[in-house]
Amino acid sequence: MNGAYALPRVSARLLPVWRRNFLVWRKLAVPSMLGNLGDPLIYMLGLGYGLGSFLPEVGGVPYIVFLAAGTVCFSVMNSATFEALYSSFSRMHVQKTWDAILNAPIALDDVVAAELAWCAAKSFLSGLAIMVVAWALGLTSSPLSLWVLAVVPIIGLAFGALALIATALSPSYDFFMYYFTLFVTPMGMLCGVFYPIEALPTALQAVSWVLPLTHATELVRPLFLGQVPPHAVLNVAVLLAYAAAGFYAAMILFRRRLLS
């Protein structure tokens, strides 16, 4: 703990903390899965087929196919964000689970890293479930679409890390409404989830390119359609940069909040 600004030092001690979260999840798996997966699937199928029946092809494919790829990203973002905001906050602030863990030989860096890894794991489940439905409905059949499953944890890490910053700053659950309204919801509209980015005014397109969700859809949609993403390295690098910077920033804020 050499000051709040030290680079995070993560060790294998994060494993029992991750495992703790997994054990709790396993107890509540059914309602948790239903809540996490039901909503995005309903929107995807309802809008995709219902609204899609009025639309010509979007981005060169039927709307349900376009939307399914977007839904994977949107759902992974939401799942990681919810976990890092509400669940982590509950463990840190309400239940004081972190305080208990910190009395054992585990450092705060490991606790936060375990939370982030857990966000990625949970968001992976969301992405996997959507992909299973997409495969079952024949919305995608390219072997390249399997690569989506490799991309999903990176998306989860980026959004988990960013949301942890809000958690570290938050005085109460109410604070998270700002994060959703000012950051998450606008991204849903600006980042190529529901319609191509080209539909946006030029100025907004520029904004869009800075946002992490755009780099998620830029990776997932081509893979979904059986193409190699044209800027794969850049997209992965941007997502990893968000993950790393978000984790470091959150770490600084958590140290100041909990260890001073």
Binding site: Q95, T97, A100, I101
Partner: peptide, 18 residues
């Protein structure tokens, strides 16, 4: 700050793992 999601024994098991 006992873990409310676990039973009595699970609390000890999970804490021992730390």
């Amino acid at each position: 700050n006992i873990d409310p999601d676990f039973t009595v024994a699970e609390n000890l098991l999970v804490y021992g793992r730390y």
